[in-house]
Design a protein around this nucleic acid. Structure first.
Lengths: 325, 325
DNA sequence: CTTGACGGTGAAATCGATTTCTGACAGGGT
DNA sequence: ACCCTGTCAGAAATCGATTTCACCGTCAAG
């Protein structure tokens, strides 16, 4: 690949002038034209690597997510991407698979590649953002706010959503409402379970019955396994609040196999299933503003990149609850 | 962030020695130890940018896909990622949205960031890989092989799959079998339609009835729109072959709305819907080995990166046809 | 007529890691 | 004693773009 020196030689100018042509500094029209012609002839593309090294920053932002196969995160990614590319930034997606090791590797890459910023949906527990923060790399947390770190965050009110979803089941008259949530070290999982606990204990003296609470893995098979366990209880639940979209697929599959699909069993889900609503099954859904989470996070990040240094903000988006089917 | 010079100063050696310590060259144990201690104390991470500039290559491969919200491509991405990271490479995902402009930008980035290689599911039509090829950047096409360019490719037999799927509908006794396929400038779309044409004309003198053929956009809404059109025909089809997973969601939604879900209407789909199989709807599915497409493409690319320069290969994976529901 | 400002340009420094080149020193063979 | 080989380590060149600095004209103001 041709370098700026070759272009300079071909156009009969210095490399400095070539650089100026591409960066909009003052160059005489004739030389500018000569440079442009030479650049086109050689199919010259400036090396981003050299540029990044010199400028100590690039126009790439990293989006770190725990599960690329979850439609929620891909929708979020689309939101981030749209905003970013409108502002001239590229987005690279990094899939951590809920694995701290991988997450650390990617954050390290983001740092040592001097990316412009990072948007992260942290893998379970306390992610180590100290490296980024120490180097003043702009960071925005999305969906999950890392524990004890003071960064911008864009989230939803998980507890309220869990409560609303469960409350809908209560109102439908169900008596024994179970909860299938995510890993106990993931904030969104515990908060949604807290919402469930709120709703099932409202107006009752009793405590939430933890026999009906299951921690799974936010994935299809985990949801199925948890549902099977619940149905095998001596006194199985008559309804279930599932704390994310993928697990609900597993849970519904099990219910389907056992002939207990809604309305026989009450089901409420935190999150959308874009490919689900074919057959009318009455389910309560807490819609996630996935795309908007991404859009908002990207806007925040861009502000930080531009130099905004006000104290960290947390933005809480609403999620609507609606029956489906 | 600390540089190699600071580490060198702290350890009382030259930068060259620090580099040698990290790259496994001969260094006396004492100095090596001193360097390691200094590096740890300063939390030193070598700059990938500088390293890439000097070495003229990085350990990052780009995966360029047309629709990140399609589970097929995310499954493929997982396959690529697993192989890549096992070999010490990172994967960055680039979403082109079936847009040539965006695709070009990303290919340009891959080149000017001297990435190790590119795996691409080309956006419709003839993608411009000339830049990459001219610079001898390893490229593997996956799912779709760019027209008229001689690169490694990992694909499935789209025509055979379309034929098999449609044939299943014929065998089920359907008479007027429609086809909803993708954009006419996408290879996989036309090939699958060709398969449909094969099957509906087998053993009949007549030509395929193009009234029953619709070119959509490989997305949910496009599938729905096409299905609506088909059902509005004076003599509507009694079965439909849908050429990808997302469009089938739209088509099934329309069928559901009009009370014509299978088995009333015959449906065959090219591709899997991971989140679908809840309610038993009898559908014929041509399974896509998405993950394996990714795995195979990544292996091929790694070979090329290592310097393999045998003539370009095309690997055709099988896809199984099976009834579902 | 002089001075200052300013637009245009090239030479050279810079970003941070790698690597060649070179020299210093130690040990073994004749 | 001498030479050769081999190990270790630093100085300096290198990758390619950006940017400061210095310089040369030209033009306008004083």
């Amino acid at each position: 690949m041709p370098t700026i020196y070759e272009v300079a030689a071909a156009a009969g100018v210095s490399p400095a002038t070539v650089s100026r042509v591409f960066n909009g500094a003052n160059v005489s029209p004739e030389k500018a034209e000569a440079v442009r012609k030479a650049a086109k002839a050689l199919a010259f593309t400036p090396s981003r690597t050299a540029r990044t090294l010199r400028l100590q920053s690039s126009e790439v932002i990293a989006l770190v997510i725990p599960d690329i196969e979850n439609p929620f995160f891909t929708a979020l990614a689309r939101g981030v991407e749209d905003v970013a590319r409108a502002a001239g930034y590229s987005v690279v997606l990094c899939n951590t698979d809920e694995d701290h090791e991988k997450e650390l590797v990617y954050l390290d890459i983001a740092l040592s590649a001097t990316m412009a910023g990072v948007i992260i949906a942290a893998a379970g527990g306390n992610s180590d953002l100290s490296g980024l923060l120490a180097r003043k790399c702009p960071v925005v947390a999305v969906d999950r706010s890392p524990h004890g770190v003071d960064v911008d965050a864009v989230i939803v009110d998980n507890r309220a959503g869990g409560r609303a979803a469960t409350h809908a089941l209560v109102e439908q008259g169900f008596q024994r409402i179970a909860c299938i949530t995510g890993p106990s070290d993931v904030e969104t999982a515990t908060q949604r379970a807290d919402g469930w606990r709120d709703a099932v204990t409202t107006g009752r003296p009793a405590e939430a019955d933890d026999r009906y609470l299951r921690y799974a893995d936010f994935r299809v098979d985990g949801g199925a396994a948890a549902m099977s366990e619940l149905l095998a209880l001596p006194e199985p639940p008559d309804a279930v609040f599932v704390a994310n979209n993928l697990m609900s697929v597993g849970a519904l599959r099990v219910l389907s196999e056992q002939g207990k699909l809604p309305p026989a069993t009450g089901v409420a889900v935190f999150g959308d299933l874009p490919f689900l609503p074919l057959v009318p099954i009455p389910i309560t859904v807490v819609h996630m503003p996935a795309r908007h989470l991404g859009i908002t996070a990207a806007k925040l990040l861009l502000e930080r990149i531009k130099g905004d240094d006000q104290p960290a903000r947390t933005i809480v988006l609403r999620n609507q609850v609606s029956p489906v089917g």
